[in-house]
Design a protein around this nucleic acid. Structure first.
Length: 270
DNA sequence: CATCGGACCTGTTAGC
DNA sequence: TGCTAACAGGTCCGAT
């Protein structure tokens, strides 16, 4: 589910309810997520004031004085702000109970998400080596072009490599490549500088626009207030295999690249 | 270092 | 209708 726009939508949804609040307790019902939720996490958080909620790549960071909680939504995770009397449902693995009386509830059927701890002054290994934020100042076509020198793998994998640029997953990679007219299977090193400039612009535009739409809801993504995202209606290629290309009318085709379905238009994308 | 395949886990859907 | 297999938005890790 969650690529950058969904994580950012989540951040914006929870921040007003979480920032400035103090943690009453952390309730962990299922410790076995992508990595075990540290046993000491509840103790570390109890009584701490959450100062801010930051996003880095697809990670959410809940900052407190002694450190930060690192939350990743994995492929099926979601966070919701709820009243304490809302019944626990299947896959509600973690509750962060706040002094406002509300709680932040983490639900994740596939358990690919994580809740980890990062002591103040350190950078967790997961956050090291990440590429630039696609909506930040250091991301542009030149960056992509430089990093693509000598790379023979498909440009789609390159674009989804979090060391190159963060936040772009399968959906938005497919969409950005369509808009840029680049075939997803083309070798990353064989895309011109000009086309990388176009691609970077489309990545930026599509992510920014998807955020304004509240992200993409395919199956189970919901924002913290329970509403879905509305970007799905604007997808040009993702999930549209066999349907007509909105630009040329030809049939969209799906190929597997790196074990991921990759839909594209063979006529518009080269 | 780049690239590839497997792994983690459960729910939904396509196909027989 | 019912069972099984394939597939799903992420990304780490180890082997090559």
């Amino acid at each position: 589910m969650p690529e950058l726009p969904e994580v950012e939508t989540t951040r914006r949804g929870i921040a007003p309810h979480v920032a400035g609040r103090t943690v009453r307790e952390l309730v962990v019902r299922q410790r076995a997520l992508r990595w075990p939720v540290p046993k000491a996490l509840a103790e570390r958080l109890r009584g701490q004031r959450i100062e801010s909620v930051e996003r880095r790549a697809k990670y959410l960071l809940l900052h407190a004085a002694p450190g930060a909680v690192i939350v990743h939504l994995g492929m099926s995770g979601s966070l919701r702000v709820l009243a304490p009397d809302v019944p626990v449902r299947a896959h509600d693995h973690v509750d962060l109970v706040l002094d406002s009386g509300k709680l932040l509830r983490f639900n994740d059927p596939r358990r690919f998400g994580c809740w980890l701890w990062q002591p103040a002054g350190s950078t967790h290994a997961l956050l090291r080596g990440l590429g630039p934020e696609p909506l930040g100042d250091t991301f542009d076509g030149d960056h992509l072009w430089q990093r693509a020198r000598g790379r023979k793998g498909p440009v789609k994998n390159f674009l989804m490599d979090q060391k190159i640029v963060v936040g772009v997953g399968n959906i938005y990679a497919a969409e950005a490549l369509f808009r840029a007219g680049i075939a997803p299977g083309r070798a990353a090193g064989r895309v011109s500088r000009d086309r990388y400039v176009a691609l970077a612009g489309h990545v930026r535009a599509i992510l920014a626009h998807a955020i304004t739409r509240g992200g993409t809801t395919l199956r189970d993504f919901i924002s913290p207030d329970g509403s879905p995202g509305y970007f799905e209606q604007e997808l040009a290629v993702y999930g549209r295999e066999g349907e007509a290309c909105r630009a040329c009318g030809g049939d969209l085709r799906s190929v597997r690249i790196g074990a991921r379905a990759s839909v594209y238009c063979p006529r518009c994308q080269r």
